[in-house]
Design a protein around this nucleic acid. Structure first.
Lengths: 233, 233
DNA sequence: TCTTCAACGTCAATGGTGTTGGCATAAGGT
DNA sequence: ACCTTATGCCAACACCATTGACGTTGAAGA
């Protein structure tokens, strides 16, 4: 297992222009790749074509990313970071979680191909993805402790799905009305395990499978109680 | 556009054994492919490896299927057909739809990789798939007219998702309580457009997008009223 | 039983893919 | 001015899906 040398993303770099005069950066590559993804679809994004679009060689991409999988993850992170750029947590955890969920939801709604790519290409499984770094970084930057950040992250993925399904029309679900609900929510967060987080693009059946497999014993209750609050007011 | 010659699936075929003595059939190939998919994941299913597993050459697969995409669709159909093998409609459309939805749900729950493959590989988009033939065939066999079959199919895809989300714990959602609900359902079926059906493995955000884009004006209402019936009884 | 002929398994080749190691050169630091 | 490192480029490799030619084989017609 040789650790491969990759161009670091330092501030002071020895920038050398490509043959066509481009100066490559991580950002530029990711943005170009994202554009290709949007314009030509998932199958249109290949190392060779990306190099061509950058005015460089295909192998040059490998100076910046360890492989196409790394690049795809970077794309997902880019999408994510853009969605979070202007996020300012209010300190009210419930409102903050809801805001986060909606942002994720919108980000992947704008770039479904990125989500699909991540799911199928990188892991080969539909319910895993690997960009914890970016997300946890954001949460830490917002002042959350590490352990809390992980649990919060898991929680708001679920919230995002719940909102997406139950609150499609207005994307504005009112907060749970009763104090008892808040109790349930807190309890739920406390139980969430610290394992590889699910992809937000997971299929609905898989979400159900996870719920059924006892990892999230109260997730469904949470979902249904939210619906209840929505419907009875 | 040359029409490619492919081995037909006739009863009387000139069966010739492969080098290792295997006699190839469509079924055998699909079943082998499905097993490879389960055991080695989506990336492990290639034409070469499939040929090897069959004791034949990679190109032999192309005698039976027009390409890997065709094969993947055949796999999806196989999964689907298995799920539907013992389906006997009762004639009560509401109960039948619910049954169908659950069967689809379970089929793709058992083989998420097949769904993912179909979505990413064949169409490059997450919300399309192309195995209408099999599904419509089943519905026709159950006595539905063509136009009805298409609408019913679209409808029960949505139903399957709705059940999957709202009815995860018991997989047994009671029928809507009031007559008014039934009216809404009937109306919904009547409005469903006859276009390429959505993949059941569509991501939740994409489902929402479809709902928001006015193609399904009453789908959300349908969903929520079901939840309401569930919660108030 | 013999001939014929299409079915169909196999071989070889093509162009595309991700990926890597070596080489040359430009950019900094000293 | 030198020297080291970063980093773009070239050539090559293994694997992929796909195709066309080739030859064998089994079944049908006589």
């Amino acid at each position: 297992m040789t650790t491969k040398r990759v161009v670091p993303e330092t501030a002071r770099r020895r920038r050398r222009p490509t043959k066509q005069g481009q100066v490559l950066t991580h950002r530029l590559i990711v943005e170009t790749a994202l554009r290709m993804l949007r314009e030509h679809g998932a199958a249109g994004l290949t190392a060779r074509r990306l190099g061509l679009a950058l005015g460089a060689d295909a192998s040059t991409v490998y100076r910046y990313f360890r492989g196409m999988d790394d690049l795809v993850l970077a794309i997902a992170d880019e999408v994510f970071a853009n969605a979070m750029a202007d996020w300012r947590p209010t300190g009210h955890w419930r409102a903050d979680l809801r805001d986060l969920g909606l942002r994720i939801h919108h980000a992947y709604l704008a770039h479904p191909q990125a989500a699909l790519l991540t799911a199928s290409r990188v892991t080969g499984r539909p319910n895993e993805v690997a960009s914890d770094e970016t997300i946890l970084g954001i949460l830490r930057g917002a002042g959350f402790a590490d352990a809390d950040a992980v649990r919060i992250y898991h929680a708001f993925i679920d919230q995002s799905l719940a909102f997406a399904i139950l609150d499609a029309a207005t994307l504005a679900l009112p907060a749970p009305a009763r104090e008892a609900d808040e109790e349930v929510w807190r309890d739920t967060y406390a139980r969430l395990p610290a394992r590889t987080h699910p992809n937000i693009a997971a299929t609905a059946p898989l979400l159900v499978a996870r719920m059924n497999n006892s990892a999230y014993p109260t997730a469904l209750d949470m979902l249904l109680s939210s619906a209840s609050a929505q419907l009875t007011t």
